[in-house]
Design a binder for these strands. Sequence first.
DNA 1: ATGTTC
Length: 472
Amino acid sequence: MELVEEAPYRFRIERRDTMRVPGVVFASRALIPDVGEDRSLEQVANVATLPGIVGASYAMPDVHWGYGFPIGGVAATDVDAGGVVSPGGVGFDISCGVRLLAADLHRDDLPRVREALMDGLDAAIPRGMGRGSVWHLTDRAELDAVLRAGSRYAVERGHGVPRDLDRCEDYGAVGDADPAQVSDRAVQRGQGQVGSLGSGNHFLEVQAVDEVHDERVAAAFGLRAGQVCVMIHCGSRGLGHQICTDYVRTMERTMPRDGIQVPDRQLACAPVDSAEGRAYLAAMAAAANYARANRQLLTEAARRIFARVTGGGLDLVYDVSHNLAKIETHRVDGVERRLCVHRKGATRALPPGHADLPADLCPAGQPALIPGSMGTASYVLTGVAGAPAFASTCHGAGRTRSRKQATKTVRGQDLRRELESRGIAVRGASWRGLAEETPEAYKDVTEVVEVAEGAGLCRRVARLVPLGVVKG
DNA sequence: ATGTTC
């Protein structure tokens, strides 16, 4: 795989064979995946063959290997020129994302309540494979309401306050969700999981603002140095997973009919403007709403514990997905075009002044929330004007070693002891799950966000450090 | 990521 450095932190994969556009990798030399261990750059090139793709097949600095598309990939297709949508370009965990809450508590006041807080959260936050949820929905009609209206429905039912919705991407619910496009099996899997973290890299952390990079923007986001925060990272659980599985199968069948050939069957896709494309987007939107309701219910669970232990509240800073396809209008070669922007392990980062931002965030830009690996920093970023890659940036640290490799480097018990010795309280779900998430298996998130900023994708606003982790 | 292989 030949990479040409065409600008600082920007490498090009030249067009060849059936690639319709070049690949563009935003990275430092150190962050470029090792070709011997990770085939994600080959995946960047594969994505460039998709019908209707415009600009380039992009990779963020945290890129690593994924299903079909790389994780940390951005690809936009032209809806009105036969552009396709691909479930693998969104990922199995549809609308997996991050929510940040700001507590009215200073980190100096945390130690005296920390153990009570962590024990409360340990009991209140359902997590791990299967294993319970805050909200148990008994009938399909109620789940359909979640699928149609996401956080809006949760707030309507008393799980949150209207202001929360102003701080959610899409004001808490994606339009055009259609529960009828969601299979019965997906519904069955999702019924008992609204308000649960799941497993893998999902977590709820108690954090503190450790450094503010941009005072003005941080203030607009409601953040100041020393402030205690809560970060929630989770997705659409079994429901989103089943929807992805269902539509990959459907599109594997319809691709020959549509005359679409792809270099990897995991790139199964259909024209956005086709029955299958529309059905997938409607089901994907339903899963996106499910994921938002999931984060809203976990927010309420955390709020109950904070109220009981500290007497204080948690204000929503923002909630943003990093696994989603969206129909957006962007200017391409001087012309406004309707694009299907796939962001898989990539975060939308709207620039200041964007019309989709609520009025009070508009001068600052959209918060992009970047969780680090366990025990390391997380970041709040904001969008910048004129950025490449359709207003997208990185989504996290990015894996460098598989889960299995990770478990060979450390035992969960030892990792917990190490984190506790560094002042980070740990409430895990399983020892194995903890070991799989050792920071040794990830890139350095600080390097990732520095490169993302250097590449002109975003600006850093604040760095958060973990004080307690409730691990999925 | 995931009832970690319908």
